[in-house]
Amino acid sequence: MAFNRVKQWTTFARVWYLFDAKWQDPIISGRVLSKYLLGKNKPIYSVGSDCGDYVVVINSKEIALKDDLWRTYNYFHHTGYAKGATYTPAWEYHENDPTRIIKNCTKNALPPKIYRNSLLSRLLVFPDDKVPKDVIKNITDQIQPSMTPPKRLTEFSEDEIQNFPRLFEWPKEFIIDDLKGENNQTVKII
């Protein structure tokens, strides 16, 4: 028995990473994930070596697109027959399969070679944070997200809102009833 058999066991092991896609741009995160799938984060990387890692993506339903892209960006598909072109907007594309956009973006970021599909088979995407236990046991590390997710106003507690320092003081001689809406509705000040 060779005792030095396990000498470089961890350098050649496939590492399992977790990536939280909440409020992440799929185009930017696709570029990041492709590096991990190819194994470019490792010092032993070369073009021919098969040293890619596994990546588990969660919360793919909550990815964020820039500006107005949900409405304006269209996915094109042609059936091959006449008048077979279809344009599905991104929001509809995402509604049908919430894991599809992030997969597509990582595919586009990878080099166009034959082994691209085998690399993509190591990308596991889940729409929620419900991941099977067998997968969770494998995970060791986390990929740092590029953007910090913002917090909605409803997610803050009332104490947090009340204790937050105020930026301006209301003028003393201001009559509150002047702030009336167009429909003559009463306006509450918060």
């Binding site: 066991w9 961890t10 092991a13 496939r14 590492v15 399992w16 596994y54 046991k137 494998n138 060791t140």
Partner: peptide, 14 residues
């Protein structure tokens, strides 16, 4: 100390 792919055939433990 460390482990990856505990459920896979190519697992690694430290």
């Amino acid at each position: 100390i460390w482990s990856t792919g505990a459920n896979t055939p190519t697992s690694a433990f430290v």
